[in-house]
């Protein structure tokens, strides 16, 4: 149990998707003009990461990995399909996003109204595929660990986008040099926040 909490906390702070790996930067920069949209996209990312990482974990361990197919019989024990992992992961992500979108639309129109336009965007958010690839690289030992990693990275991403959106709302009132306005200053602030987040580096959990 403690192990799960550790992975969760690690995903939020130490291995933050934005500040440590720059994953999902495109939507992070494009959709962070106001806190409200930032919260919407952040929530959608938590949601999708929490679903796709465990699903991809099952895929990886029961189909793709070398020897993963041995549950089909001894003949399949030597099959290694890991070269297919990119295409399989992305297919799972794209279809899960579509499924989630349809389910949310049917069962919770209010949530759909809030997340609506962000859900399709998420299929191409690098942090989702990045989550799947890191999960594959780090070899988590159970599906619970993979889920907690997915949720943790999602919350870390949420935190980052809400923080930058809040700063951008305030910075409107500052006298930023004209060529730096908008995108430029956002990059620099993100860099400074990244330096701050480096304080968490090296903490062993």
């Amino acid at each position: 149990m403690l192990e799960l909490v550790n992975i969760f906390i690690k995903g939020i702070f130490i291995e933050n998707m934005i500040f440590a790996y720059f994953l999902g930067m495109c939507s992070y920069l494009a959709v962070s003009k106001t806190v409200k949209t930032g919260v919407g996209l952040g929530a959608a990312v938590i949601f999708v990461l929490g679903i796709t990482v465990p699903v991809n974990y099952l895929l990886e361990n029961y189909i793709l990995k070398e020897g993963a197919l041995s549950w089909l019989g001894a003949d399949f024990a030597a099959v290694d399909l890991s070269f297919l992992s990119f295409i399989m992961f992305i297919a799972i992500i794209a279809s899960m996003v579509q499924l989630v979108e349809m389910a949310v639309e049917k069962f919770s129109p209010a949530l759909y109204g809030a997340l609506g336009i962000f859900l399709p965007l998420i299929a191409v958010n690098c942090s989702i595929l990045g989550g799947a690839l890191f999960m594959q690289e780090r070899q988590y030992s159970s599906i619970a660990e993979a889920t907690s990693f997915g949720l943790g990275s999602g919350v870390g991403w949420f935190l980052a986008i809400v923080a930058i959106a809040a700063i951008r709302e305030k910075i409107k009132y500052s006298n930023v040099p004209a060529p730096l306005r908008g995108l430029g200053i956002t990059y620099i602030i993100t860099g400074l926040m990244g330096i701050a987040f480096m304080a968490f580096m090296g903490i062993e959990l």
Binding site: F19, Y187, I188
Partner: peptide, 8 residues
């Protein structure tokens, strides 16, 4: 060499 410098 650290990641944040790329942003800056």
């Amino acid at each position: 060499i650290l990641p944040p410098m790329a942003l800056i």
